[in-house]
Amino acid sequence: MYLDAAKPAKETVVETNGNGFHKPAAVYEKWQDWYASEISHHGAMCCEIAREWITSTDFSELGGASILTGPRWLRLKFNWGASSFPIYWCEAVRKKTLDCGALAALASAIFTARGVKNYRVQMVQRFSEASTNQWSNSWNDTSEQLRWMNDDLIYHEGCAIAAGDGEIKIWDPSAGWWVDPKSKDGYGGLLAVRLSAFNLPADVNFTWGKHSLSAYQWTNIN
């Protein structure tokens, strides 16, 4: 994830969890004030054409499958990598590479076009310092850690869909899979999650596996 608007990290308290990983008291603190990424619209035909192309292509790619199917084709079309924001529809669809925020915004637009109620999802995942160092080197000219990283933690975005009475499923468009609500702390593990959506009341709660998530609130998963 890369956001120009990101704010500097605050100092966090570090403790150890049951698996022996060092875990800040609020793993999401560095990204507390970040918003889910959006794709901007020029208010002109260029962006309208691009948006129509994405949603019509999605229907073709769906091949008659359920509208609740994850749009994995996005990752065949776009590599995962750095994007710069603001990014406009007419630019995004022509890129070869998009980051998790842009991919999540596209997935959200796709689910909306299919008539599937969906929400934007922000996540904190643990990888390893070896991984974050690799990403720092490949996304940057320098090896300095990027703002979406914090040691072995990373900020990530996805998209949730309504899957029943208050239940949701979380789609990770960068990975092309549904995030497991039983996710464990460890490499690739999900540590915290936050849901948001346009016009979503603040007092709404969701069930994700055994987790209860409140709109706009970061929730620790592990």
Binding site: M45, E48, I49, E52, W53, T55, S56, F59, S60, L62, G63, G64
Partner: peptide, 21 residues
């Protein structure tokens, strides 16, 4: 047969986009 009907619906959507744009 099912795929053909999905294609038909897919074409309607593309046509709708083409007409509008």
């Amino acid at each position: 047969v099912g795929q053909w009907w999905h294609l038909f619906e897919s074409i309607l959507r593309w046509c709708g986009s083409i007409e509008a744009l």
